[in-house]
């Protein structure tokens, strides 16, 4: 049976369709989850996609973090279910307290849409396990508020715990200031929860699933979930 990805749609979400497309390319099934619902329809994995949930009024992700569906996502995450927040979804996860830190206005004070290089590192997660690319992943960003920030203790904890799972790097894999598109601390592009099953990232892997569109490097993140479940089934 294919893995069922639940894709949460808030008013203002726009990468739900792109995520569903990527999930289909990865050979899995996409199920739409509506923001006002209180259950997850038995999905195997939850994606909080990009967009401007509720217009991102007040603060990016701040209103969405209190949507009815988030309570269900919280329970799902607590039970070890894999949750991926992409762009606005990462902002929602931080606002909901499912991930530490915050996403601030880009250092440039401008929106940025561009390709970035990403190094996969840290502990394995349901979305990055088995991804060991020889060269950095080529995945684009598209955001105005993507500068990852947290207090020094939190950053140190993330680094020591292997919870920084994606980092902006140059073509040679070095985390240089030039490779950092938004001013994130430590070039952080994506982090995982302490248990590793909740991952937030600013880049958009769903836009990098076909060579025709410039890169297929993101597809592995969607396939990893199916691979992990297969592995889990074997080990049981």
């Amino acid at each position: 049976m294919p893995v069922r990805f639940g894709i949460v749609v808030f008013p203002g979400t726009w990468s739900d369709r792109d995520c569903a497309h990527a999930v289909a390319l990865a050979g899995s099934e996409a199920v739409t989850l509506w923001h006002a619902d209180r259950e997850l329809a038995g999905v195997d994995c939850v994606i909080l996609p990009g967009g401007f949930a509720y217009g991102d009024y007040l603060r990016a992700g701040a209103i969405a973090a209190h949507a009815p569906i988030i309570a269900a996502v919280r329970s799902f995450a607590a039970a070890g279910g894999p949750v991926l927040g992409i762009c606005n979804g990462f902002q929602v996860l931080c606002e909901a307290g499912l991930l530490p830190g915050a996403l601030l206005r880009n250092r440039s004070l401008q929106f940025r849409c561009q390709w970035t290089g990403l190094r996969v590192e840290g502990r394995p997660t349901p979305f990055t396990a088995g991804l060991a690319p020889a060269t950095p992943l080529r995945i684009p960003i598209s955001h105005g508020e993507g500068r990852y920030h947290a207090d020094p203790d939190t950053i140190a904890g993330l680094e020591l715990g292997g919870r920084v799972v994606l980092r902006y790097v140059d073509a040679r894999g070095a985390a240089t200031p030039d490779a950092n598109p938004n001013g994130s601390l430590h070039n952080i592009a994506g982090i995982a929860s302490a248990a590793g099953n909740v991952v937030g990232m600013m880049p958009h892997p769903e836009r990098a699933c076909e060579a025709l569109l410039g890169s297929a490097d993101g597809l592995g993140m969607f396939r990893a979930v199916a691979a992990a479940r297969l592995g889990a089934a074997r080990s049981r």
Partner: peptide, 14 residues
């Protein structure tokens, strides 16, 4: 100019 515009959303921009 255009790095301030999302030119990729929709997964159709070749």
């Amino acid at each position: 100019v255009w790095r301030q515009y999302d030119h990729m959303v929709g997964d159709d921009t070749v």
